[in-house]
């Protein structure tokens, strides 16, 4: 058996009286794309925020490439090769595209920012990814929802992460931009050295791009199958059946 790139064992998280996650066991292998689905409020975003070091779990272990770790902060997780695209994108409206691309890992010619180098690299990288922007110097506030999402994804892909966590990267996307993001994920898959955990609501897209699918319900993983072994109908039935039961 291969060593998982990232593994969660028995992760639990409470916010006051609310139990967000009760016992999460999940793993993603090197080069694998794992789809994480589940209802709104099932705890998907909380789980992502634990895996990226933003929240600390109340119980359970996180194992990165076979090593058990305590993720102290987002920076710490990043240094271990875990990078995240948050649902809210974590873009700073007041800053330019290229400053956002390099947020908190700016290129510096001490004591000043090396704006020219950041600009050049951002331009090249976005072009490689097929993101069309007239000017990387423009403030992010002036871009469309899809463009903003593309930049957030591009930023994480560019970071040379080993594990990418994507929290609903397709949510604000038009058809064209959505396809672009899916293409980026396929590219990563072809490269084979980056693992991806992707949260999405569109099951067809999940099955299309993911190797394996996990379903998160009531703070637990209740379903774990290879994408090839399941179907749109099965996933829909599972979620709908749960909804009926709860009613």
């Amino acid at each position: 058996m291969t060593t998982a790139a990232l593994q969660a064992r028995g992760i639990a998280k409470r916010f006051g009286a609310l139990t967000a996650l009760s016992d999460i066991n999940l793993h993603v292998d090197p080069g694998e794309v794992l789809g994480l689905i589940g209802d709104n409020g099932a705890g998907k975003s909380t789980l992502i925020k634990i895996l990226c070091g933003y929240h600390q779990p109340d119980a359970g272990q996180i194992v990165v490439a076979g090593q058990e770790v305590t993720l102290r902060s987002v920076d710490h997780a990043r240094s271990l090769g875990i990078d995240t695209v948050y649902q809210d994108l974590a873009l700073i409206n007041e800053l330019s595209v290229y400053h956002n691309m390099f947020l908190n890992r700016e290129l510096v010619r001490w004591p000043l920012l090396n704006n020219r180098a950041m600009k050049r690299r951002a331009e090249r990288h976005l072009k490689d990814m097929g993101v069309n922007l007239p000017d990387v110097g423009v403030e992010v506030a002036k871009l469309s929802g899809g463009q903003r999402q593309a930049i957030a994804v591009a930023r994480s892909v560019y970071s040379d992460a080993k594990v990418l966590l994507l929290d609903e990267p397709l949510a604000a996307m038009g058809a064209k931009e959505g396809t672009m993001i899916l293409d980026v994920i396929r590219d990563l898959k072809r490269r084979g050295d980056v693992s991806v955990i992707i949260i999405a609501h569109n099951y067809a897209q999940v099955l299309d791009v993911c190797d394996r699918v996990n379903l998160l319900q009531h703070g637990r993983i209740t379903f774990d199958k290879r994408a090839a072994d399941t179907s749109l109908e099965e996933l829909t039935d599972l979620v709908v059946a749960d909804y009926r039961r709860r009613r």
């Binding site: 933003y54 902060s73 987002v74 920076d75 990043r78 995240t84 948050y86 809210d88 994108l89 974590a90 873009l91 700073i92 409206n93 007041e94 800053l95 947020l103 908190n104």
Partner: peptide, 11 residues
Amino acid sequence: GNPVGATEAGI
């Protein structure tokens, strides 16, 4: 500009 986003980026 974006307190949550800045923290998420590790600032």
